[in-house]
């Protein structure tokens, strides 16, 4: 059965490391739903988060193949235990007449913040799990959405254990 997995990877912060991971997914026809990467507090390391889906066998292969890449230092499947997932979204939406107050109300309910205002638009910043961001966009229903930017998910394990060197 296909299930969503969030894989967190500590990667050498070197040119080409990202394409090794991305290339592995395309060469072996694995899914990527989202991928984020940025340097960590240790500038020699990047932390990458890949959201993928597949059967248990496929995800096991994904983990093993990733581990084989020389640039991959450590990795963990966050979905194997309890974890926190967050995604950042910026959305530019219609904010004229009735919509203006409706958008403000909805943003408050979803704990978003309006970070840019024009006569006709609001730009809203919102963080949360992917499902929450989806729910907000659905809730806007008749209000026009002009632009949506999403960061892709990042995640961290709950408790004291951490993914470090």
């Amino acid at each position: 059965m296909n299930r969503k997995h969030i894989i967190s990877i500590l990667l050498e912060n070197e040119s080409g490391a990202l394409s090794r991971v991305a290339g592995l997914f395309s060469a072996r026809a694995y899914n990527i739903e989202s991928l984020t990467v940025a340097p960590t507090d240790d500038e020699t390391l990047s932390r990458m988060t890949v959201v993928t889906s597949g059967t248990e066998e496929i995800v096991e292969q994904i983990m093993k193949q990733l581990n084989k890449l020389v640039d991959v230092v450590k990795l963990i499947d966050l979905t194997e235990s309890s974890f926190i997932e967050r995604e950042l979204m910026l959305a530019k939406v219609e904010a004229t007449s009735d919509a203006r107050s409706e958008v403000k109300r909805l943003a408050d309910i979803f704990r978003g913040r309006i970070i840019d205002v024009t006569d006709n638009t609001y730009t809203i910043e919102m963080t949360g799990k992917g499902e929450k961001l989806d729910a907000f966009l659905t809730a806007l229903s008749s209000i026009s959405i002009y632009e949506v930017v999403r960061s892709g998910a990042i995640g961290i394990g709950r408790g004291e254990k951490s993914l470090t060197l």
Partner: peptide, 11 residues
């Protein structure tokens, strides 16, 4: 020697 070879095609 390669963990990725194990259970790749045959369980």
């Amino acid at each position: 020697i390669d963990p990725a070879s194990i259970s790749k095609n045959v369980k």
